[in-house]
């Protein structure tokens, strides 16, 4: 169950990440991409995926589930940032 939750978490974080200028820079997109509307679309989609995946959290209580989800999102985001930092440093 945990691996399913993390598997859903990753695309959610990536979708959210696609709206960020730093990720665009790494991915080689032009600075103008995505436009303002697309940026918020990415954030909305990423946020919805993260929210929709909340019930997948293998926690015994609602409070534990929310706490686990918040921490998982934070941790995955940090690891994404660390990974992207390494990608950028290597280029």
């Amino acid at each position: 169950m945990m691996s399913v939750a993390v598997a859903v978490l990753l695309p959610g974080c990536l979708l959210w990440g696609c709206s960020l200028p730093y990720v665009r820079d790494i991915a080689g997109f032009s600075v103008k991409y995505p436009c303002r509307r697309k940026k918020y679309l990415f954030r909305l989609a990423g946020g919805l995926v993260l929210l929709a995946a909340l019930p997948l959290c293998p926690a015994p209580s609602v409070a534990a589930g929310i706490a686990m989800w918040v921490m998982l999102i934070s941790l995955v985001s940090f690891l994404c940032a660390l990974g992207l930092g390494f990608v950028r440093a290597m280029r």
Binding site: G17, L20, P21, Y22, V23, S77, C80, A81, L82, L84, G85, F86, R88, A89
Partner: peptide
């Protein structure tokens, strides 16, 4: 907060890296 969310410049100067 959001632009800084994914910013970690490992090869930047030490103060910049620490602030990131």
């Amino acid at each position: 907060m959001i632009p800084d969310y994914f910013t970690l410049r490992l090869k930047a100067s030490r103060p910049r890296f620490l602030l990131d």
